[in-house]
Amino acid sequence: MRIVHAKMSLCLIFLGLGTATSAQAPLDLPVSFAIQADSASYSDLADLIVISPLIIDVTVRNVKKLTVEQSVGVPTSMERVLVEADVMALIRGEGGFAPRVRFLLDVPKNAKGKIPKLKKQRVFLFGRQVQGRLGEIQLSRPNAVALFSAANDTLVRNITSEAVQLGAPRRITGITSAFHSAGTVLGEGETQIFLKTDNDQPLSLTVLSRPGQQKQWAVSTAEVIDASATAPERFTLLWYRLACGLPRSLPSERVEAASNQDTARAQADYKFVIDALGPCGRKR
Protein backbone atom coordinates (compact mmCIF):
# COMPACT_ATOMS: atom_id res chain seq x y z
CA MET A 1 0.00 0.00 0.00
CA ARG A 2 1.75 3.20 -1.06
CA ILE A 3 1.36 6.56 0.57
CA VAL A 4 -0.90 8.85 -1.39
CA HIS A 5 -2.04 12.32 -0.38
CA ALA A 6 -5.20 13.49 -2.08
CA LYS A 7 -7.73 16.25 -1.52
CA MET A 8 -11.37 15.29 -1.40
CA SER A 9 -14.66 16.93 -0.51
CA LEU A 10 -15.70 15.80 2.94
CA CYS A 11 -18.86 15.06 4.78
CA LEU A 12 -19.31 14.12 8.41
CA ILE A 13 -21.02 10.88 9.34
CA PHE A 14 -21.46 9.69 12.92
CA LEU A 15 -22.58 6.12 12.44
CA GLY A 16 -22.46 3.45 15.14
CA LEU A 17 -22.45 -0.04 13.68
CA GLY A 18 -22.85 -2.00 16.87
CA THR A 19 -22.09 -2.18 20.53
CA ALA A 20 -18.56 -2.55 21.82
CA THR A 21 -17.22 -6.08 21.64
CA SER A 22 -15.35 -7.67 24.49
CA ALA A 23 -11.75 -6.54 24.18
CA GLN A 24 -8.42 -7.18 25.81
CA ALA A 25 -7.00 -4.83 28.39
CA PRO A 26 -5.67 -1.59 26.86
CA LEU A 27 -2.23 -1.94 25.33
CA ASP A 28 0.80 -0.45 27.00
CA LEU A 29 2.42 1.11 23.95
CA PRO A 30 4.84 4.00 23.48
CA VAL A 31 3.11 7.36 23.09
CA SER A 32 5.04 7.84 19.85
CA PHE A 33 3.26 4.82 18.36
CA ALA A 34 -0.32 5.20 19.55
CA ILE A 35 -2.27 7.86 21.42
CA GLN A 36 -3.05 6.38 24.81
CA ALA A 37 -6.53 5.48 26.04
CA ASP A 38 -6.31 7.17 29.43
CA SER A 39 -4.07 10.21 28.91
CA ALA A 40 -4.68 11.47 25.39
CA SER A 41 -3.52 14.94 24.45
CA TYR A 42 -6.14 17.13 22.75
CA SER A 43 -3.49 18.45 20.40
CA ASP A 44 -2.16 15.01 19.43
CA LEU A 45 -5.68 13.97 18.41
CA ALA A 46 -6.33 17.28 16.64
CA ASP A 47 -3.06 16.90 14.70
CA LEU A 48 -4.44 13.71 13.14
CA ILE A 49 -8.07 14.77 12.76
CA VAL A 50 -7.38 17.93 10.74
CA ILE A 51 -5.33 16.01 8.12
CA SER A 52 -7.51 12.88 7.89
CA PRO A 53 -10.51 12.70 5.51
CA LEU A 54 -11.36 9.29 6.99
CA ILE A 55 -11.69 8.53 10.71
CA ILE A 56 -12.99 5.15 11.83
CA ASP A 57 -13.40 3.21 15.05
CA VAL A 58 -12.37 -0.42 14.52
CA THR A 59 -11.75 -3.66 16.38
CA VAL A 60 -8.73 -5.65 15.22
CA ARG A 61 -9.67 -9.04 13.77
CA ASN A 62 -6.40 -10.43 12.42
CA VAL A 63 -2.74 -9.44 12.32
CA LYS A 64 -0.26 -10.81 9.79
CA LYS A 65 3.46 -10.16 9.92
CA LEU A 66 4.98 -9.16 6.60
CA THR A 67 8.18 -10.50 5.10
CA VAL A 68 11.50 -8.67 5.15
CA GLU A 69 11.02 -7.84 1.45
CA GLN A 70 7.67 -6.24 2.29
CA SER A 71 9.13 -4.24 5.17
CA VAL A 72 11.87 -2.26 3.45
CA GLY A 73 12.76 0.85 5.43
CA VAL A 74 11.20 -0.32 8.70
CA PRO A 75 13.58 0.13 11.68
CA THR A 76 14.77 -3.06 13.38
CA SER A 77 12.92 -1.97 16.53
CA MET A 78 9.60 -2.18 14.65
CA GLU A 79 7.58 -4.91 12.94
CA ARG A 80 5.42 -4.20 9.87
CA VAL A 81 2.09 -5.98 9.94
CA LEU A 82 -1.04 -6.16 7.83
CA VAL A 83 -4.05 -5.59 10.06
CA GLU A 84 -7.61 -6.63 9.26
CA ALA A 85 -10.27 -4.95 11.40
CA ASP A 86 -14.04 -4.75 11.77
CA VAL A 87 -15.53 -1.24 11.55
CA MET A 88 -17.44 -0.27 14.70
CA ALA A 89 -18.26 3.30 13.65
CA LEU A 90 -17.53 5.72 10.83
CA ILE A 91 -16.77 9.09 12.39
CA ARG A 92 -15.63 11.02 9.33
CA GLY A 93 -15.74 10.08 5.68
CA GLU A 94 -17.65 10.21 2.44
CA GLY A 95 -19.28 7.74 0.10
CA GLY A 96 -19.49 4.03 0.75
CA PHE A 97 -17.30 2.12 3.13
CA ALA A 98 -16.55 -1.51 3.85
CA PRO A 99 -17.59 -3.17 7.13
CA ARG A 100 -14.08 -4.65 7.29
CA VAL A 101 -10.86 -2.80 6.49
CA ARG A 102 -7.15 -3.56 6.03
CA PHE A 103 -4.16 -1.33 6.70
CA LEU A 104 -0.40 -1.49 7.19
CA LEU A 105 1.00 -0.72 10.62
CA ASP A 106 4.54 -0.57 12.00
CA VAL A 107 4.41 -1.86 15.58
CA PRO A 108 7.20 -1.50 18.19
CA LYS A 109 8.92 -4.66 19.44
CA ASN A 110 9.64 -5.31 23.09
CA ALA A 111 13.02 -6.31 24.52
CA LYS A 112 12.41 -9.91 23.41
CA GLY A 113 11.61 -8.87 19.84
CA LYS A 114 7.89 -9.54 20.24
CA ILE A 115 5.03 -7.20 19.32
CA PRO A 116 1.96 -6.57 21.49
CA LYS A 117 -1.14 -8.68 20.94
CA LEU A 118 -3.29 -6.42 18.77
CA LYS A 119 -6.08 -8.91 18.12
CA LYS A 120 -9.44 -7.79 19.59
CA GLN A 121 -8.03 -4.37 20.44
CA ARG A 122 -10.29 -1.43 19.64
CA VAL A 123 -8.61 1.60 18.07
CA PHE A 124 -9.28 4.74 16.08
CA LEU A 125 -7.69 4.97 12.63
CA PHE A 126 -6.94 8.30 10.94
CA GLY A 127 -6.28 8.21 7.20
CA ARG A 128 -7.89 7.92 3.79
CA GLN A 129 -9.41 5.18 1.69
CA VAL A 130 -7.07 3.97 -1.07
CA GLN A 131 -8.66 4.99 -4.36
CA GLY A 132 -10.29 2.10 -6.17
CA ARG A 133 -9.69 -0.31 -3.29
CA LEU A 134 -12.70 -0.39 -1.03
CA GLY A 135 -11.68 -1.44 2.45
CA GLU A 136 -7.98 -0.58 2.13
CA ILE A 137 -6.90 2.29 4.37
CA GLN A 138 -3.77 4.45 4.08
CA LEU A 139 -2.96 5.95 7.49
CA SER A 140 -2.28 9.70 7.51
CA ARG A 141 0.95 9.03 9.38
CA PRO A 142 2.71 5.78 10.32
CA ASN A 143 1.49 6.32 13.90
CA ALA A 144 -2.02 7.64 13.10
CA VAL A 145 -3.65 5.39 15.67
CA ALA A 146 -5.39 6.08 18.98
CA LEU A 147 -6.43 3.48 21.51
CA PHE A 148 -10.16 3.40 22.20
CA SER A 149 -11.67 4.74 25.40
CA ALA A 150 -14.86 6.61 26.23
CA ALA A 151 -12.81 9.76 26.81
CA ASN A 152 -11.03 9.44 23.45
CA ASP A 153 -14.33 8.72 21.71
CA THR A 154 -15.77 11.98 23.05
CA LEU A 155 -12.65 13.95 22.15
CA VAL A 156 -12.41 12.56 18.62
CA ARG A 157 -16.06 13.27 17.89
CA ASN A 158 -15.99 16.77 19.38
CA ILE A 159 -12.85 17.82 17.52
CA THR A 160 -14.14 16.31 14.27
CA SER A 161 -17.43 18.20 14.63
CA GLU A 162 -15.48 21.46 14.74
CA ALA A 163 -13.02 20.50 12.01
CA VAL A 164 -15.67 19.83 9.35
CA GLN A 165 -17.57 23.09 9.85
CA LEU A 166 -17.43 25.74 7.14
CA GLY A 167 -14.99 28.37 8.32
CA ALA A 168 -13.27 26.01 10.76
CA PRO A 169 -9.99 27.48 12.07
CA ARG A 170 -7.12 26.76 9.71
CA ARG A 171 -3.41 26.19 10.20
CA ILE A 172 -1.47 29.33 11.06
CA THR A 173 1.50 29.90 8.77
CA GLY A 174 2.87 33.15 10.19
CA ILE A 175 2.40 36.71 11.39
CA THR A 176 1.83 39.33 8.70
CA SER A 177 1.92 42.51 10.80
CA ALA A 178 1.34 44.05 14.20
CA PHE A 179 1.08 47.50 15.72
CA HIS A 180 0.52 49.13 19.09
CA SER A 181 -1.53 52.29 19.64
CA ALA A 182 -1.02 54.15 22.90
CA GLY A 183 -4.10 55.55 24.64
CA THR A 184 -4.75 59.04 25.91
CA VAL A 185 -3.76 58.20 29.49
CA LEU A 186 -0.68 56.48 30.89
CA GLY A 187 -0.94 52.70 30.72
CA GLU A 188 -3.74 52.63 28.16
CA GLY A 189 -3.18 51.04 24.78
CA GLU A 190 -4.22 48.53 22.16
CA THR A 191 -2.14 46.03 20.20
CA GLN A 192 -3.43 44.38 17.04
CA ILE A 193 -1.68 41.38 15.49
CA PHE A 194 -2.66 40.00 12.08
CA LEU A 195 -2.01 36.35 11.29
CA LYS A 196 -1.68 34.38 8.07
CA THR A 197 -3.34 31.00 7.55
CA ASP A 198 -2.88 28.34 4.88
CA ASN A 199 -6.07 29.44 3.08
CA ASP A 200 -5.86 33.19 3.83
CA GLN A 201 -8.67 32.97 6.39
CA PRO A 202 -8.94 36.27 8.32
CA LEU A 203 -7.44 35.90 11.78
CA SER A 204 -6.25 38.60 14.17
CA LEU A 205 -5.48 39.15 17.84
CA THR A 206 -6.35 42.23 19.89
CA VAL A 207 -4.91 43.06 23.30
CA LEU A 208 -6.42 45.90 25.36
CA SER A 209 -4.71 47.58 28.31
CA ARG A 210 -6.49 50.02 30.66
CA PRO A 211 -5.15 51.57 33.88
CA GLY A 212 -6.32 49.72 36.97
CA GLN A 213 -7.85 46.87 34.94
CA GLN A 214 -6.64 43.43 34.00
CA LYS A 215 -5.27 43.19 30.47
CA GLN A 216 -7.71 41.51 28.05
CA TRP A 217 -7.25 39.82 24.69
CA ALA A 218 -9.48 38.45 21.96
CA VAL A 219 -9.24 36.69 18.60
CA SER A 220 -11.28 37.71 15.56
CA THR A 221 -12.02 35.50 12.55
CA ALA A 222 -13.68 38.20 10.43
CA GLU A 223 -12.31 40.68 7.89
CA VAL A 224 -13.41 43.52 10.18
CA ILE A 225 -12.28 43.09 13.78
CA ASP A 226 -15.29 42.13 15.86
CA ALA A 227 -15.70 44.30 18.94
CA SER A 228 -17.55 41.47 20.69
CA ALA A 229 -14.76 38.93 20.06
CA THR A 230 -13.32 37.07 23.04
CA ALA A 231 -10.41 34.77 23.83
CA PRO A 232 -11.03 31.17 22.71
CA GLU A 233 -12.01 28.51 25.22
CA ARG A 234 -9.27 26.07 26.07
CA PHE A 235 -9.36 22.74 24.21
CA THR A 236 -11.28 24.01 21.21
CA LEU A 237 -10.03 23.94 17.63
CA LEU A 238 -9.36 27.70 17.61
CA TRP A 239 -7.36 27.40 20.83
CA TYR A 240 -5.41 24.49 19.31
CA ARG A 241 -4.57 26.45 16.14
CA LEU A 242 -3.24 29.35 18.22
CA ALA A 243 -1.51 27.43 21.01
CA CYS A 244 0.22 25.05 18.61
CA GLY A 245 0.63 27.34 15.60
CA LEU A 246 1.83 30.70 16.87
CA PRO A 247 5.57 31.41 17.10
CA ARG A 248 6.77 31.83 20.69
CA SER A 249 7.71 35.49 20.19
CA LEU A 250 6.71 38.41 17.98
CA PRO A 251 9.48 39.31 15.50
CA SER A 252 10.32 43.02 15.70
CA GLU A 253 10.34 43.30 11.90
CA ARG A 254 6.63 42.44 11.87
CA VAL A 255 5.78 45.40 14.13
CA GLU A 256 4.76 48.64 12.44
CA ALA A 257 5.79 51.11 15.13
CA ALA A 258 6.78 54.73 15.39
CA SER A 259 9.10 54.06 18.32
CA ASN A 260 11.02 51.29 20.05
CA GLN A 261 8.66 51.70 22.99
CA ASP A 262 5.66 50.80 20.79
CA THR A 263 7.52 47.75 19.49
CA ALA A 264 8.31 46.63 23.03
CA ARG A 265 4.66 47.08 24.09
CA ALA A 266 3.45 45.03 21.12
CA GLN A 267 5.91 42.26 21.93
CA ALA A 268 4.90 42.28 25.60
CA ASP A 269 1.22 42.05 24.65
CA TYR A 270 1.98 39.16 22.31
CA LYS A 271 3.77 37.34 25.14
CA PHE A 272 0.67 37.93 27.28
CA VAL A 273 -1.41 36.08 24.67
CA ILE A 274 1.08 33.20 24.47
CA ASP A 275 1.07 32.85 28.25
CA ALA A 276 -2.72 32.99 28.37
CA LEU A 277 -3.03 30.24 25.76
CA GLY A 278 -0.74 27.96 27.73
CA PRO A 279 1.31 25.10 26.29
CA CYS A 280 0.22 23.29 23.13
CA GLY A 281 0.27 19.99 25.01
CA ARG A 282 1.64 17.68 22.33
CA LYS A 283 3.11 14.48 23.70
CA ARG A 284 4.60 13.21 20.45
Rank of each mutant, 00 (worst) to 15 (best):
L105C: 14
A85G: 07
I51H: 01
Y42Q: 12
G212K: 05
T67C: 02
E69V: 01
I193H: 07
R61W: 04
P169E: 04
E69I: 02
Q70S: 14
N62W: 06
T21L: 12
E84I: 13
P279Q: 05
G16V: 13
Q201S: 09
G135H: 06
V255P: 03
V83M: 10
Q36P: 01
R284F: 10
K112T: 11
D47F: 06
V81M: 07
S71V: 02
D47H: 03
A268D: 00
R171V: 13
A258S: 14
G95A: 00
G18H: 05
D262R: 13
A266H: 08
A150R: 12
A264K: 15
V87P: 02
A25W: 08
I51T: 09
F148M: 11
S140H: 02
L45M: 15
L246V: 11
G278T: 10
I115C: 03
N110D: 15
F179E: 09
S140L: 09
A264G: 12
N260I: 04
I35A: 08
G174S: 03
P169G: 11
Q165C: 11
P279W: 01
A229E: 00
L118E: 10
G18R: 00
E69D: 09
G187A: 09
S43V: 02
K109Q: 02
N110G: 04
P232R: 02
S181Y: 04
T59N: 14
A89K: 12
P99M: 08
R241M: 15
R141G: 12
L205V: 10
V130L: 15
Q214T: 05
D198T: 03
S204A: 15
V72M: 07
I225T: 15
F126K: 06
M88N: 15
V273A: 04
W239E: 08
